[in-house]
Amino acid sequence: MTHEIERDTVPSRWPSGLPLPPDEDLAALHTTLARRAQDDGLLDVAYRTVDAPLGPLLLAATPAGLVRVAFEVQDHERVLEELAARVSPRVLRAPARLEDVARELDEYFAGRRRTFDVPVDLRLLAGFRHVVVEHLADIGYGRTTSYAAVAAAAGSPRAVRAVGTACALNPVPIVLPCHRVVRSDGAPGQYAGGAAAKVALLELEQRVGP
């Protein structure tokens, strides 16, 4: 896990000469804590990481749905801090809530899935950006469209630059496919996960076929 915090192994005031308190395995206790936090309605943001062909992805969900997908280049630790500040500091590593998303992403990368069925929580976006990102789901698998066409579909044909910004700020890339929005001259354009990741996703979809 890239964002694992170091833990202490020896208490600072433990006297020499006495056996060290055993270094306990806390994994099982952490799992129980995550389950009980969920049962008590305290798990405001659950997260986990998954290994993807593009590198590790951070997945985070509120009780309403998937709220964030982040590439490694976006700095997972910084993303968690942003979620704490903007959604709730009750952020806990809790893989159970993200099992469906993780499975669907696996299937997507294996070329066995073209659309995602998981609920999405777009609370991190407001106004026009929210509208644009919602429209991304209409761009079919294996197809691409231009920033200008998305602007027109969102009802603001002149807001091409704003569409670019909205795509860059898409909180759930891959699941809402901002990678299918490319420049009018056909060049892939920028991507939150890096230009190479965008090309890789488009190539995957080309290979599998629309």
Partner: peptide
């Protein structure tokens, strides 16, 4: 405003002892 997970990761072992 820090993610709660930090507190568990940093202090979980001390609290268990």
């Amino acid at each position: 405003v820090e993610p709660f997970e930090h507190a568990v990761a940093r202090h979980g072992a001390t609290v268990l002892r």
